[in-house]
Deep mutational scan, measured.
Amino acid sequence: GNIFIKNLHPDIDNKALYDTFSVFGDILSSKIATDENGKSKGFGFVHFEEEGAAKEAIDALNGMLLNGQEIYVAP
């Protein structure tokens, strides 16, 4: 299952995104959108192997604080 994450703190990188979401299941890919200079655009995507893991991550993390910013997590 794919999920979309927005309002990410600029310091959150691909590894931090992966580490945050990997507790919910096996991740096939995770990516933070960046500009041409490699600076985070504040949103990203995680693709879980299983749909159930994606739903669990959405339920658990939507509205949670990550590096002091409330993140939005949705399908």
Rank of each mutant, 00 (worst) to 15 (best):
G1N: 06
G1R: 03
N2A: 01
N2K: 02
N2T: 00
N2F: 00
N2P: 00
N2Q: 02
N2V: 00
I3G: 00
F4C: 01
I5D: 00
I5S: 02
I5K: 02
I5L: 13
I5H: 01
I5V: 09
K6G: 03
K6Y: 02
K6M: 01
K6L: 01
K6D: 00
K6I: 01
K6T: 01
K6P: 00
N7P: 07
N7M: 07
N7Q: 09
H9R: 09
H9D: 15
H9N: 15
H9M: 06
H9Y: 08
H9G: 10
H9F: 08
P10V: 15
P10L: 14
P10D: 12
P10G: 08
D11A: 12
D11H: 15
D11I: 09
D11C: 12
D11Y: 11
D11N: 10
D11F: 13
I12D: 01
I12H: 03
I12K: 02
I12M: 05
D13H: 10
D13P: 09
D13Y: 04
D13V: 05
D13S: 07
D13F: 04
D13I: 05
D13K: 04
N14S: 10
N14G: 11
N14V: 08
N14P: 07
K15Q: 06
K15N: 05
K15V: 06
K15D: 03
K15Y: 06
K15L: 06
A16H: 05
A16D: 06
A16N: 07
A16P: 03
A16T: 14
A16G: 07
A16L: 10
L17R: 00
L17W: 01
Y18S: 09
D19V: 12
D19F: 09
T20N: 05
T20F: 05
T20H: 05
T20G: 07
F21H: 03
F21N: 03
F21W: 05
S22V: 09
S22H: 10
S22R: 10
S22Y: 08
S22W: 08
V23W: 05
V23S: 07
V23D: 05
F24P: 01
F24W: 11
F24M: 14
G25V: 00
G25C: 03
G25W: 01
G25I: 00
G25N: 02
G25E: 01
G25L: 01
D26K: 10
D26Y: 10
D26N: 12
D26T: 08
I27C: 03
I27S: 00
I27P: 02
I27D: 00
I27V: 08
L28V: 05
L28G: 04
S29H: 00
S29V: 01
S29P: 01
S29F: 01
S30L: 07
S30T: 05
S30N: 06
K31W: 04
K31Q: 03
K31D: 00
K31S: 03
K31M: 04
I32M: 13
I32F: 03
I32L: 12
A33C: 15
A33R: 07
T34N: 10
T34L: 13
D35V: 09
D35Y: 13
D35P: 03
D35N: 13
D35L: 13
D35K: 12
E36Q: 14
E36K: 14
E36D: 13
E36S: 09
N37K: 14
N37S: 12
N37R: 12
N37Y: 10
N37M: 15
N37L: 13
G38C: 08
G38W: 07
G38E: 10
G38P: 02
K39T: 11
K39D: 10
K39R: 11
S40V: 09
S40F: 09
S40P: 10
S40R: 06
K41R: 14
K41D: 04
K41Q: 06
K41E: 04
G42C: 15
G42H: 14
G42D: 04
G42F: 07
G42N: 15
F43N: 01
F43S: 03
F43L: 02
F43H: 08
G44D: 00
G44A: 14
G44Q: 00
G44M: 01
G44E: 00
F45G: 00
F45Y: 11
V46S: 04
V46A: 10
H47F: 02
H47G: 02
H47Y: 02
H47C: 03
H47A: 03
F48T: 00
F48Y: 12
F48V: 02
F48W: 03
E49T: 13
E49S: 10
E49R: 09
E49H: 10
E50R: 13
E50S: 12
E50T: 08
E50P: 09
E51T: 11
E51Q: 10
E51L: 11
E51N: 11
G52W: 10
G52F: 15
G52V: 14
A53S: 13
A53C: 12
A53E: 10
A54D: 05
A54S: 12
A54N: 03
K55H: 09
K55I: 12
K55N: 11
K55T: 13
E56V: 10
E56S: 07
E56D: 14
A57D: 01
A57T: 10
A57F: 04
A57S: 10
I58N: 07
I58T: 12
I58K: 13
I58S: 07
I58V: 14
I58H: 11
I58F: 07
D59R: 15
D59T: 10
D59S: 10
D59G: 10
A60E: 13
A60Y: 07
L61V: 14
L61E: 04
L61F: 05
L61W: 05
N62C: 12
N62I: 07
G63S: 11
G63D: 07
G63C: 08
G63L: 05
G63Y: 05
G63I: 02
M64F: 09
M64K: 07
M64A: 07
L65V: 13
L65G: 07
L65I: 13
L66W: 06
L66S: 10
L66C: 13
L66I: 15
N67E: 15
N67C: 14
N67H: 07
N67R: 09
N67V: 15
N67D: 13
G68Y: 06
G68V: 06
G68A: 13
G68L: 12
Q69K: 14
Q69T: 15
Q69I: 11
Q69V: 12
Q69Y: 13
Q69L: 15
Q69H: 15
E70G: 12
E70Q: 12
E70N: 12
I71F: 08
I71A: 09
I71C: 08
I71L: 15
Y72A: 09
Y72D: 03
Y72E: 02
Y72W: 04
Y72S: 05
Y72L: 06
Y72K: 07
Y72C: 06
V73I: 15
V73R: 02
V73A: 15
A74E: 03
P75A: 13
